[in-house]
Design a protein around this nucleic acid. Structure first.
Lengths: 109, 109
DNA sequence: TCAGTTTATGTCGGATTTGACATACATACA
DNA sequence: TGTATGTATGTCAAATCCGACATAAACTGA
């Protein structure tokens, strides 16, 4: 992964939102970042809807609170695999995941 | 990742298909594996539809033919990140990805 | 204010995933 | 038969991602 770029994105306080062609991010990289942000949103919403804390979720997926926190803050060290695993661990279904894939994230810079 | 289990799955020649509760795969792990298989299918179809070889695709995504081959054969060493990146690199759109997420893979054991 | 709960940030050693390379296998066409 | 093209498999060092831990910050409710 071109994580360096994502880290710069993060560092700059960016949340992105399909209009983040501001530094050499290729189209596919941008699409992946946007997708991740959407799914991260879905994870947080699904987790909160079921009244789970980050610790609860971490336990369910055999992970740690800090990793869940990084996940939800969009830390570039978190893989799409982990995001999707987290989504399923909240109780999210494949159909709900599909919906989340379709819902582009809205963002204030 | 519980890759050991996936490797055993692979080794046994399994392709899985939502009915693979045959060895201690947790529900979420199973869902993730099934999802990956669906997306792998989508990558291959998208690649072939555009007349790209594995080498072509590898170049587009800055990867190698061998990794694309592993990807398409469902090798457990391939991450969801790479699968999605590959899908986008074929020219696949987010909407098409969404469709692929909804389409569960059909499999002969 | 304080204690309790939840979330965020930084770091690190170990595990996983990576691209690259070699090479084998397959198919097609001369 | 050969040889060209495409795909699969095995290996490895480097890059990335992981859970865990410490600790800070934010937000409650007393």
């Amino acid at each position: 992964m071109g994580t360096a770029k994502l880290k710069r994105l993060q560092a700059a306080g960016w949340k992105s939102g399909s209009a983040d062609e501001f530094l050499g991010l290729s189209d596919e990289e941008t699409m992946l970042v946007d997708l991740k942000l959407s799914l991260v949103d879905a994870v947080r919403q699904s987790r909160q809807k079921r009244g789970l804390s980050q610790i609860d979720l971490a336990q369910r997926m055999g992970s740690s609170q800090s990793r869940v926190a990084k996940l939800e803050t969009g830390d570039p060290s978190v893989s799409l695999d982990l995001i999707v695993r987290a989504f399923f661990a909240t109780g999210g279904t494949r159909q709900e995941l599909q919906r989340a894939v379709g819902a582009k994230v809205k963002v204030a810079a």
